[in-house]
Amino acid sequence: MARINEGAERASGSAWLIATAALFVPGAGHLLLRRWGRAALMGGAVWLCFILGLVMGGHMFDLSTGQGSSPFLQVPPMIANLGSGALYLICWFLGVGFADDPQQAARATYEYGTTFLLIAGLLNYLTMLDAFDIAAGRKP
């Protein structure tokens, strides 16, 4: 317990900054920490997962819903999608991957793409936490 508290005290402002960068741009946290291998592996996995999801025609979630269901039902998957950080925001601004298009939904890879987009966000949360732990000195 004392060891955990000691680690918590050591989390400096730069650790939080690195975590924010890692959340916003996948892999950026490890790049700032000069952990090139980890940045390439973890950031690369998130980027690849996200791009593959978009290519497969996946759908991302926001609070709007065209099917009359509660917007609150969109919140859990939206939290997963938000993990992609800037990638999610750019797509949101450009309107890519958010359309409720029946033709897109009919694609064989639609569900796979949606899952890949969700997983990309969740993996980036893990990547961000790893970068934070390294920056805070809790991990070698």
Binding site: L41, M42, A45, L123, L126, D130
Partner: peptide, 10 residues
Amino acid sequence: MLASVVFGAV
């Protein structure tokens, strides 16, 4: 593959 890369690294 993608998930195991991240899990393994973390």
